[in-house]
Computed example of a mutant assay.
Amino acid sequence: MPENDDPKPRSKLRGRAAAIGLTKAQVIAAALAQIDEKGLQAFSMRELARSLDVSPGNIYFHLGGAKEDLFAEISGALTASVSENIDAGMPWQDRLRQVFLAYRDTVGTHPNLAPMLGAQMKSNGVANLAWVETVLGALGDAGYHGQALRDAFNALIGGLGGFITMEFAPAPSEKAREWEELFAARVAAIDPELYPRTHAVLPELSNRIFVLRWQNGTNVSYAGGYELLLNLLIDGLAAHAPRGPDTSSPTDTTN
């Protein structure tokens, strides 16, 4: 049969037949590429399906019944990557430092994801368990358990994740250039009589600190502040580590 007589050309296979061979990893990679290019707000399941030459139903078949399932898998893929090659024999402080520095580097390559990772619960899910396991293991070795473990975990994730969410916060999507110029002008015009301390250090702080900036971490590095926060949290956890046995341990045989 001549090639042009093929009754089912590839471009028309958009149902389950087109999904044969499609993997979760391919769906995640395609979704991440779309978010990298167009931003989180412009993400479209229909466009994702078109890019993979399948129907939207096939995306849900692979990843669950809602867009939130896909976002959780994207988050999980990123957090799993930062947990790889962590030496469990390293001191717990070094493990935390390594995994959270890697997390910032990873988010920095996909800054459009930052709002989802830090500020939206739809990125939550069991797909993040590799990261959770690594952090809990380090905190357990530091002596944290029970309520103290929960508080320490939330302090790390909230503090460092929140920092990254702010660092890569998106600028206005419309008239971005005009907004930047207007904001820069307003910062430069800060009244020295009303705000003398702020005005005195404007050359060092302008567009370099949260609140008084018009560019995010893709243009201006906040590595120094992040590493300071990470070290402060780790030092604080070491200083406040509980003293005494882990009474919540599954091997505890006391009554």
Rank of each mutant, 00 (worst) to 15 (best):
L129K: 13
T165A: 15
A30C: 10
P111G: 08
L232H: 12
P172Q: 04
E47L: 12
S221L: 07
L117F: 06
A171F: 07
D87Q: 08
R208N: 09
E73D: 11
F61Y: 15
D235Q: 10
S206L: 04
L229R: 05
G15M: 07
R10K: 15
I74P: 00
A30W: 03
T254N: 14
A17H: 09
A241K: 04
Y195V: 01
S123K: 03
L182Y: 05
G143P: 06
R186K: 07
V211E: 02
H110A: 15
M116C: 09
E68P: 05
L113F: 03
L182W: 00
L205T: 11
E174V: 15
Q120G: 07
L70C: 05
D141T: 10
R208G: 08
A189N: 03
T134P: 06
L101V: 14
A239T: 01
L205W: 06
F61V: 09
G244D: 03
Q26I: 04
L156M: 14
T198L: 14
A18L: 13
P7V: 12
Q93V: 11
A19L: 08
A119T: 04
E174K: 14
S173G: 15
A114I: 02
A102V: 09
S248A: 14
F43C: 08
S173P: 09
D151R: 13
H145K: 03
A25N: 07
L101T: 15
A42R: 04
E37Q: 13
L230T: 09
F153P: 04
E84T: 02
T253P: 02
P242T: 05
L205M: 11
W92P: 12
E167P: 05
G108P: 03
A185P: 00
T254E: 10
I20A: 15
R95Q: 12
D5N: 10
I35W: 05
R104D: 10
W214S: 04
M45R: 03
N231I: 06
S206E: 11
F71Q: 05
E181W: 09
R208Q: 08
L52G: 14
R208H: 09
S206T: 08
W214C: 03
A130Y: 05
R10M: 12
V107A: 12
V27G: 04
G159C: 10
Q215C: 10
A80C: 06
L212R: 04
E133Y: 11
Y60V: 07
I59K: 00
A241I: 01
P172Y: 07
G89K: 03
A42F: 07
E84N: 04
A169W: 05
G244K: 02
A42T: 04
I74V: 09
A119E: 04
S123Y: 02
